[in-house]
Amino acid sequence: MPVAGIDIGSRTAKAVIMEGDKIISSHIGETILKGPDVGIAVLNESLKLAGLKLSDLESIMPTGYGRFQFTGGEKHVSEISCHARGVHWYFPTVRTILDIGGQDSKAIKCDSNGRLTNFVLNSKCAGGTGRFLEVIADILEVPIEKLGELALSSRQNISFSTVCVIFAKTEAINMLREGVPKSDIIAGLHDSIAKVAASLLVQLTVEKDFSLTGGVAKNSGVVAKIKEKIGLEPMIAPDPQLIGAVGAALFALDRAKRRRTA
């Protein structure tokens, strides 16, 4: 029977429906101040895509920021464990994961079963998250999906003081005022995100097979910088934003299985 994983993040909610070992459907929706109902909304969308009803699901696992308010699901699991689990499903050899999310950046270690063994998160003040990119993309009037491409055309190294999104914004404005090309500013920004990520990773031991997840993993500029800083090629899942929901769905499968055998 199918199961669902829902990752209700602070900015977006994602739902994945799985059956056996396959993803049947998925959906991503905006969350901002929409409240707890957003989880059920994205779930319904993905059910529709799969041609299923809520009652067809054997188990629903919520994770993410909004997991506490989600009713009608399993006892929730943190998105950090879900990330480890989701990545493991795609890449069983991966032991180190770097997740750059909207509000947090995390470095995660897992074992050969995809179980969480250690993790580090950025301090609240450190920036280096997806939000960082959004704010700057906005100032530069560059669509966020174009950032990576632009950054790769940069010719000079610009250093950002990465402490804070707000300060970085002021810095970016000043750079614009001094006539620094947008591509260089974006490249500098990517560099600083990669630096924060690298400083998280050094707190754990990085193993060769490592994966990059979160919306930022779609950004070729950041990926290139991370490769440069870590010296390893990250493995990236087809839709890195969905990893948490996939992990949650896998936990849902476990729970369902456990109930069946019990």
Binding site: V77, N118, K124
Partner: peptide
Amino acid sequence: TGQIKTRVQAFIEM
């Protein structure tokens, strides 16, 4: 708060 809970829950899962 939310962020603290996530860290704590992951810590407990670990």
